[in-house]
Amino acid sequence: MASQGTKRSYEQMETDGERQNATEIRASVGKMIDGIGRFYIQMCTELKLSDYEGRLIQNSLTIERMVLSAFDERRNKYLEEHPSAGKDPKKTGGPIYKRVDRKWMRELVLYDKEEIRRIWRQANNGDDATAGLTHMMIWHSNLNDTTYQRTRALVRTGMDPRMCSLMQGSTLPRRSGAAGAAVKGVGTMVMELIRMIKRGINDRNFWRGENGRKTRSAYERMCNILKGKFQTAAQRAMMDQVRESRNPGNAEIEDLIFLARSALILRGSVAHKSCLPACVYGPAVASGYDFEKEGYSLVGIDPFKLLQNSQVYSLIRPNENPAHKSQLVWMACNSAAFEDLRVLSFIRGTKVSPRGKLSTRGVQIASNENMDAMESSTLELRSRYWAIRTRSGGNTNQQRASAGQISVQPAFSVQRNLPFDKPTIMAAFTGNTEGRTSDMRAEIIRMMEGAKPEEMSFQGRGVFELSDERAANPIVPSFDMSNEGSYFFGDNAEEYDN
């Protein structure tokens, strides 16, 4: 993207840094990872977990959730003011799984939030270390993106479920800051804005008074975040219109849905970061690795190297396929839920299948599930090659597409044709070009129609051997075009429920 120079890199967003050079960025990201790792080690000690239990991804998720809940100030305040039966607002906890007599047992633990905050700050040299908290939120978000298709949420806001490739980060909490905003897809931002506008339509006082002023500035800020994701002048001009509207209503909703559809071809720039579970960072720190000293990046080879040398386990339900569970977590670790499966298959070195073909449910185990038949197995999170994460949407291309997802959002900077089903997408653009945004709409449609099938995206960008740390010898991959490109292809993934 041309304006790259004016933006802070995501590592800076990730670490609240002012302008830093590459070495400083690597050190501050490393410091953040160190903090998460030290916190995780301490929690495993508190909970008396064995090494194996500490490497269980379900335990990692519970521990991450506990610290996120302990620092969720708004919710904590709300819980104190609106006490609900049987919930102690000062405590947080969740299921911890232990191996007892050759069987997995679930144990519900409860801790004072104050105590968890103390352990977290102690692991982070006394700081609140917001960057580390956001990092864990993005890992949870990436896992949700890989596990669930947001059909219901899309339909509720009037969008087409086939636009799911635009929904990265749709389950990120509001408090995820600049680093969170960077990884949100165009569809996620559109959905947040539509929800806001709908509230304004239904509630006369939404934009009024002292609160209304705050609401208005939040609305304009979200519009600017979305505008910054678009790469064409016409899309940005249309966002200006939406932002400046005196009284946002149905016309703005129409414009936003139009823009979301246009992003299936004229893709937005959305950041991709490899955020790993805390149970990967903990053992690495415990083994003596100093992330701050060595430096770390979320968008280069580092996460690949770390996963190459990590042992992570997962509980497996009786009829689940461990290899499929591994694929789910591998995609989440690489922030690749909406990437082209052919690119992923090449990088991973084994075939990556669409969601609907995987015999696996989510990673988390519900409290009512029976533990008797639970097994555990090693997650295979290694890769054959590594590639640089991208934040450009890439230019655009036609490809055989599917009944489910009709476009992709690249996660890796790797040369390819970008699949999208042009006739299906263009069919949504018939007729409606009147109104105050008509010239911009016409211009956007013209650009979409001009998108050429034979153009290559990320020209000359390749993948790298894991021994090639400096990215000196790019390998331009070859793809098996007979395979499906979309992950949520004609899909039956479970729906995400809060």
Rank of each mutant, 00 (worst) to 15 (best):
N21P: 13
R26H: 09
A27V: 15
A27N: 10
I33M: 15
R38Y: 07
I41R: 06
E46N: 12
K48L: 11
Y52F: 07
I63F: 09
A70K: 05
E80Y: 14
H82W: 14
S84A: 15
G86T: 10
K90R: 14
G94A: 03
I96Y: 14
I96E: 08
K98F: 06
R102S: 13
K103V: 15
K113T: 07
E114F: 13
E115V: 02
N124M: 11
A129S: 12
G132D: 10
N142S: 13
R152H: 12
L154P: 01
V155I: 13
R156Q: 13
D160W: 12
Q168D: 04
L172P: 06
A181W: 05
A182R: 01
G185E: 14
V186S: 01
G187V: 11
I194F: 05
R195E: 12
F206E: 00
G212W: 06
K214P: 02
R221K: 13
I225N: 13
K227R: 02
R236E: 12
D240T: 13
N250H: 12
L256F: 04
I257E: 06
I265N: 03
L266D: 07
S269I: 10
A271D: 02
C279G: 13
A284D: 01
E294T: 11
G295E: 12
I301E: 07
D302I: 04
F304I: 14
L307Y: 01
L307E: 11
V312H: 02
A323N: 13
S326R: 14
M331Y: 08
S335M: 02
V343A: 11
S345N: 12
S353C: 03
T360E: 02
A366Y: 08
A373E: 00
M374A: 02
E380P: 02
S383H: 02
W386P: 04
R389I: 01
T390Q: 02
S392N: 08
G394E: 11
Q398C: 07
Q398H: 15
Q399K: 15
V414S: 02
F420V: 14
T424Q: 12
M426L: 15
G431H: 13
N432W: 03
E434F: 00
M440V: 02
I445T: 05
F458H: 11
S467F: 11
D468R: 00
A472T: 15
P474V: 15
P474H: 01
N483W: 00
F488I: 09
D491W: 11
N492P: 03
A493V: 12
E495A: 00
N498H: 10
